[in-house]
Design a protein around this nucleic acid. Structure first.
Length: 919
RNA sequence: GGGCCUGUAGCUCAGUCGGUCAGAGCGCACGCCUGAUAAGCGUGAGGUCGGUGGUUCGAGUCCACCCAGGCCCA
C-alpha cells in the first residue's frame, strides 16, 4: 500500500505563478463586460458619499511612471472606501487646452497655423486632444484603475466651458477681475506676444553701457549729488526707467572717483572701477541696500524721479549691483515696481517703435533708438562707458528676429482681494503630509496677482466685450448669455460668430451709443480651466458634491492645480473645494536621481506591465512612502515581485488545503476551535485593525508590510507549516482538520479583501477559488472590522511566551542540525526545562506542543544536565529513538504495534483502518 | 539665491514624549527538507541612524551649520 494515497494532500488549480502580463488583460475585459464599475456604484448607492476628485492630467503623450503612481494611489483610496461603507464614485478628468497641444500640432503634424483660420485650427486641436485622451485612457485602464472611464470630464467640452465662464463671471462680479499692464515676450517682427516655448536663444551684439543717476533726495542716508551707477545692454529702455533696484542685504559703497561720488555694490567695486577706468577710488562710506530704500534720483533724460527700490532679483553676477528698473520691459522690474505701487510705463508700440511717451525718440525703432539715446546720455554727462558685447538673447522662433519685453494689456485676477480668505481655508484643510499646509500657505502669501490672459488661440475665451469707447463690458447678463451659448455651441463660436450674435438680443450700453461692440481676443490661462473643475464637476456631476473629500496630486501641484482650484473656489464660494489634500513625491531612479532621457534611466509603466504585470506595479506603489520622493528600479521591482510571490504562495497553500471545505457544512463554531486556531484568528484581527488603520491614514506601505509580514511570519513559517501534520494526516473530516480549515477560510476571505484595493487582479483571481463565497466579485464585498475572538480573552501573554520558547527551540534545533544530531526537526526529541514556574505552567498546559514545534516528542522537565541554556528556557535536543512512521514521518515507539500496519504508528494505523481499509 | 521636503542595514520600511530602539521583511551566506517543489523551513552575518559641531547626566530622536538628492520659484 502506498501510504501517500491515504494522505489528504493539497489540491488546487490556482497556479503558483501569476502570469500577470497575460492574465490581467483578460480579467480587465471581464470586468468591463460585467460593468463592474456600475455594479459597485449600484451596490453602494445610498451610503455616505466619498469623493476623490481627479486632478486632470494634460492630454498629451504617453503615460510616465508619475501618472501611474498618481492614478494607482487614487484607485487604492476609491476602492477601499467603496469597501468600507462609502459610496465613492470616481470620474477621471483631462486637461485639454493650452500651448503644448498647439505646439504638438504645429511641430508633429506640421500644421502651418498662419494658413488656417482660428476656428479651423481649434477644431484640429480638439481632435488631437481627444486622440491623446483616448490613448491615455487606454493606458490608465491597463493599470487596473477603476472609474467611470466612459464618462470622464474634459475641459474642452461645452458643459465644462460653460461652467468655467460662470466661474470667471462670478469673480468679475465680485470685482476680482481687472485689466492691467504686464511685460511679456513680444516679437516686433511678428507683432505678437510669444510664449516661453516660442523663444530661441541666439547670439546678438548689443551695446553695454554704464549710466549714472544723480541723487536728489538722499533721505537720512546720503547728502544728495551722489550718483548711482547702473549697467544695461538695452539703452532703449532708459526712457521707461522708473527706478533703480538694490539688494536689501548687499553692501553698497559711496566712492570718490574723479570729481564725482558714485555708488556701486561694494563687492563689485573692483570690476566696475576697471570697466570705468577709476583709479584707486576712495570709499567714503558704505551702507546696506535696505537703508537706501525710497531714496530719490533724477532720471538722466527727463524731469522725472527714479526711485531706489529693493528686490531679491539683484545679483552680484554682472553689472554694478544697482539695477536699472523699467517695469514695462522686464518681469522682475514689473514685480518690484508693483510692490512700490509704481505702474508700468511702456513707451514702445507693437511694432517695436518708441511712442510719444518717450519724448525725443518717438517714431524710432527700438534698436535704432539705442544709438540716439546713448548719445543723448553722453550729452548730459550720464554716460560713463559704452562698448559692445555679444551675448545670448531671446529670438522669435519663427522669424528668428530678436524679441523684447513689452508691457501689454492683460486680464488679472486680484488675489490680494481674497488672499486672507484663501489663507484661512488652507488652515482648514487636512494635509497629508502635514507640511503641505506650510508650503501652500507661503506660496499664496507671497503670490502676486494672477495674470489669466494668454495671447493664444487654444483655450477658453475671456468673455469680455468692449464698448465703442474701449470700455470692457462684463455684466451678469453677458456672462450668463455667453455661458449659455457655450453650453449649446461650444466656445468656438467666440471666434466664429459676429460680436452682435454673441451678445444678448438688443443689448445696449452707454459705452456704445451706436450699438457696436468688439470682443476680447485673449484666452484664459489653462490653470483657470482645470482650477474650475470644482464648479464643472463637483457641482454638476450626479452623486458629487462640493467640497470634495480628497484631492491627491504630485507635489508640483502646489503651484498648479491645488493653487488654482483653491483660488477660484475661494473666490466663488468663499470655501476650499476639498477637505483633504494629499500630495505625493516624484519618482526617481534607483539611486535617487531624477529620470531623464540623457541619463537613460527612465522607467516606462508600459514595460513594467508587459514584463511583470499591473499588480506588481501597484504593489510597488503600496510598498513605498509616496508622500516623499520614491525610487524605482529593476532591482526594486524584483524585490516587490518576491513579496508578491510570497503572498501568492501563502494564499495558494490555504486554497489548496480548503479545496474540500464547504463552509456551510464543515465550519466549526468559534468557541469549539482549537486554541492555536483561535490564536491565529486573533492574529488575523490584529492584522485587520492595523491594515485598516493604514488605509484610513492613507499609509499604504503599512498595508504592504503588515500583510507581507503576516503571510511570512504568522502563516507560512508557523501556522501553515505545523498544520500539515493535521491537514495531510488526519481523516478528511476530522474535527481538528475542520478547525484549521475554518480558520484558513476566514483568513483567505479577509486577506483577499484587504488586498483587493492594492492588487485587484490577483484578489479577484483568489476570490474565484475560495469555497462558498457568494458575491461574484471581491469588489462587491465589504472589508470586515476587527472583532474579538471568542474564548481568546487574556490569552495574548501566554501565546507570546509560547512563541518566545519557539524561537529558542528553533535555535536549539539548528545547533543540533549543525552537529549532525538530526536532519529535519521531526527526527528530534526535545526536553525543555522552563526557567520559571509561569512558563512551566504554560508549556505543560498547551496541547500537542510537539506538533506546534514540529518535533516527534517533547518533554517538559525540571532539570537536565545536558540541556543548553537559551533565552527563555533550557533545551536538550536528542535524536528520537523510535522508528519513523511511514505515513506521518513522525518517530514513535508505537510503530509496529498494529500488526495490520507494521510500518505505521498507532495514530496512523487507526486512521487508515477507519478510512482507507476498503481502498 | 528663496519656499517646502528627503537622507536609519544592499533594498523597502518601523522607530510615540530625548533614557534596553538600533528593529522587521526581503536580499545575501550557510544549512535542512523533497508530501506547498520554478515551492517550503531554519540559523547567521550586515548599520559611527548623511556629515560636523552644540544643548543635555543621556540624542536617529532637540538646535546650528555643512553635504547629497527632489519639487516649486527666482
Amino acid at each position: 500500500m502506498e501510504y501517500k494515497d491515504t494522505l489528504v494532500m493539497p489540491k488546487t488549480k490556482f497556479p503558483m505563478r501569476g502570469n500577470l502580463p497575460n492574465k490581467e488583460p483578460v480579467r480587465r475585459q471581464q470586468w468591463e463586460e460585467n460593468n463592474i464599475y456600475e455594479k459597485v456604484q449600484n451596490k453602494t448607492k445610498g451610503r455616505p458619499i466619498f469623493i476623490l476628485h481627479d486632478g486632470p492630467p494634460y492630454a498629451n503623450g504617453d503615460l510616465h511612471i508619475g501618472h501611474a503612481l498618481n492614478k494607482i494611489l487614487k484607485d487604492f483610496i476609491v476602492r477601499y472606501k467603496s469597501m468600507t461603507g462609502f459610496h465613492a464614485p470616481y470620474v477621471p478628468g483631462w486637461d485639454t487646452h493650452g500651448l503644448p497641444i498647439e505646439t504638438a500640432l504645429t511641430k508633429k503634424k506640421k500644421i502651418d497655423r498662419k494658413k488656417l483660420d482660428i476656428v479651423e485650427f481649434r477644431k484640429m486641436c480638439t481632435e488631437y486632444a481627444m486622440d491623446q485622451l483616448d490613448n491615455q485612457r487606454t493606458q490608465f485602464k491597463q493599470l487596473g484603475v477603476r472609474g467611470d472611464w466612459d464618462n470622464p470630464y474634459i475641459t474642452l467640452t461645452k458643459n465644462y466651458e460653460a461652467a468655467q465662464i460662470r466661474v470667471f463671471g462670478e469673480m468679475a462680479k465680485k470685482g476680482y477681475i481687472y485689466k492691467g499692464l504686464k511685460p511679456v515676450y513680444w516679437s516686433p517682427s511678428s507683432e505678437s506676444a510669444l510664449a516661453e516655448a516660442e523663444i530661441e536663444y541666439h547670439d546678438k551684439r548689443s551695446p553695454s553701457v554704464y549710466i549714472s543717476f544723480e541723487v536728489t533726495d538722499g533721505k537720512e542716508l546720503l547728502e544728495g549729488g551722489e550718483k548711482f551707477v547702473i549697467w544695461t545692454t538695452t539703452p532703449w529702455t532708459i526712457p521707461a526707467n522708473l527706478g533703480i533696484s538694490l539688494h536689501p542685504e548687499f553692501e553698497y559703497a559711496v566712492v570718490n572717483a574723479g570729481q564725482d561720488k558714485y555708488i556701486v555694490a561694494h563687492d563689485l567695486l573692483e570690476t566696475v572701477s576697471e570697466e570705468l577706468g577709476w583709479d584707486n577710488p576712495e570709499v567714503l562710506k558704505t551702507f546696506k541696500g535696505k537703508e537706501a530704500e525710497q531714496i530719490i534720483t533724477k532720471h538722466p533724460l527727463y524731469d522725472r524721479d527714479s526711485i531706489i527700490m529693493l528686490g531679491d532679483h539683484v545679483t552680484m553676477e554682472a553689472g554694478t549691483g544697482c539695477v536699472h528698473t523699467a517695469p514695462g520691459h522686464g518681469e522682475d522690474d514689473f514685480y518690484v515696481a508693483q510692490k512700490y505701487g509704481i505702474k508700468a510705463l511702456c513707451p514702445v508700440d507693437e511694432k517695436g517703435v518708441l511712442t510719444e511717451e518717450a519724448p525725443g525718440f518717438e517714431g524710432l525703432f527700438y534698436d535704432k533708438a539705442n544709438k540716439l539715446i546713448t548719445e543723448k546720455l553722453d550729452e548730459v554727462g550720464a554716460l560713463l562707458d559704452l562698448k559692445f558685447i555679444t551675448h545670448s538673447y531671446p529670438h522669435d522662433w519663427r522669424t528668428k528676429k530678436p524679441t523684447i519685453f513689452r508691457a501689454t494689456s492683460q486680464w488679472f485676477a486680484s488675489i490680494k482681494d481674497f488672499r486672507q480668505d484663501i489663507l484661512k481655508e488652507i488652515k482648514e484643510i487636512n494635509w497629508y503630509p502635514h507640511w503641505g499646509e506650510t508650503r501652500l500657505y507661503n506660496m499664496v502669501r507671497d503670490r502676486e496677482d494672477w495674470c489669466i490672459s494668454r495671447q493664444r488661440t487654444w483655450g477658453v475665451p475671456i468673455p469680455v466685450f468692449y464698448g465703442e469707447d474701449k470700455t470692457p463690458i462684463i455684466t451678469d447678463e453677458t456672462i450668463e448669455h455667453v455661458s449659455k451659448l457655450f453650453k449649446e455651441h461650444g466656445s468656438n463660436i467666440w471666434f466664429e460668430w459676429e460680436v452682435k450674435d454673441l451678445l444678448p438680443k438688443g443689448f445696449k450700453s452707454e459705452h456704445s451709443p451706436n450699438g457696436t461692440f468688439t470682443k476680447e481676443t485673449d484666452i484664459m490661462d489653462v490653470w483657470f480651466d482645470s482650477g474650475s473643475s470644482h464648479e464643472a464637476v463637483l457641482l454638476e456631476k450626479e452623486d458629487h458634491r462640493r467640497p470634495a473629500d480628497v484631492y491627491l496630486e504630485g507635489s508640483d501641484q502646489y503651484r498648479g492645480w491645488f493653487n488654482s482650484s483653491l483660488s477660484t473656489a475661494v473666490a466663488v464660494t468663499g470655501k476650499a473645494p476639498c477637505k483633504t489634500i494629499i500630495s505625493h513625491g516624484f519618482v526617481l531612479d534607483g539611486d535617487g536621481r531624477k529620470m531623464s532621457k540623457s541619463l537613460g534611466n527612465i522607467m516606462q509603466p508600459n514595460k513594467v506591465l508587459k514584463q511583470l504585470g499591473a499588480d506588481i506595479l501597484r504593489l510597488w506603489v503600496a510598498s513605498v512612502d509616496y508622500q516623499a520622493d520614491v525610487r524605482i528600479s529593476n532591482d526594486i521591482l524584483k524585490q516587490v515581485s518576491e513579496t508578491y510571490r510570497k503572498i501568492r504562495n501563502t494564499v495558494r497553500f490555504m486554497l489548496a488545503n480548503t479545496a474540500d471545505f464547504d463552509p456551510k457544512k464543515d465550519k466549526i463554531n468559534e468557541a469549539d476551535l482549537a486554541e492555536v486556531d483561535r490564536y491565529m484568528l486573533h492574529c488575523l484581527q490584529n492584522l485587520v485593525s492595523k491594515v485598516r488603520e493604514g488605509y484610513d491614514k492613507y499609509e499604504f506601505s503599512t498595508v504592504y508590510h503588515e500583510v507581507h509580514n503576516f503571510c511570512a511570519n504568522e502563516l507560512s513559517s508557523f501556522y501553515l507549516d505545523f498544520a500539515k501534520d493535521i491537514l495531510y494526516i488526519e481523516a478528511e473530516d476530522s474535527s481538528r482538520r475542520r478547525s484549521i480549515q475554518t480558520v484558513y477560510h476566514e483568513i483567505l476571505i479577509t486577506i483577499t479583501k484587504l488586498l483587493a484595493p492594492i492588487i485587484p487582479h490577483t484578489a479577484e483571481e483568489i476570490w474565484e477559488y475560495i469555497p462558498g463565497v457568494e458575491e461574484e466579485s471581491v469588489q462587491l464585498t465589504d472589508v470586515p472590522e476587527a472583532r474579538e475572538v471568542a474564548g481568546f480573552e487574556n490569552q495574548l501573554e501566554k501565546w507570546a511566551q509560547i512563541m518566545h520558547v519557539r524561537d529558542d527551540v528553533l535555535k536549539a534545533l539548528e545547533e543540533a542540525r549543525n552537529e549532525k544530531v538530526i536532519g529535519k526537526s521531526l527526527e528530534a526529541e526535545l526536553t525543555i526545562i522552563p526557567k520559571d514556574e509561569k512558563t512551566k505552567e504554560i508549556l505543560t498546559n498547551i496541547q500537542n506542543l510537539h506538533q506546534l514545534f514540529i518535533v516527534s516528542r517533547l518533554n517538559i522537565s525540571d532539570a537536565n544536565d545536558r540541556a543548553k541554556s537559551y533565552q527563555y528556557v533550557d533545551i536538550l535536543v536528542e535524536k528520537h529513538p523510535g522508528e519513523k512512521c511511514e505515513r506521518c514521518w513522525i518517530s514513535s515507539e508505537t510503530v509496529g504495534d498494529d500488526k495490520d500496519y507494521p510500518e505505521l504508528c498507532t495514530r496512523c494505523a487507526t486512521i487508515v483502518k477507519d478510512h482507507y481499509s476498503e481502498a
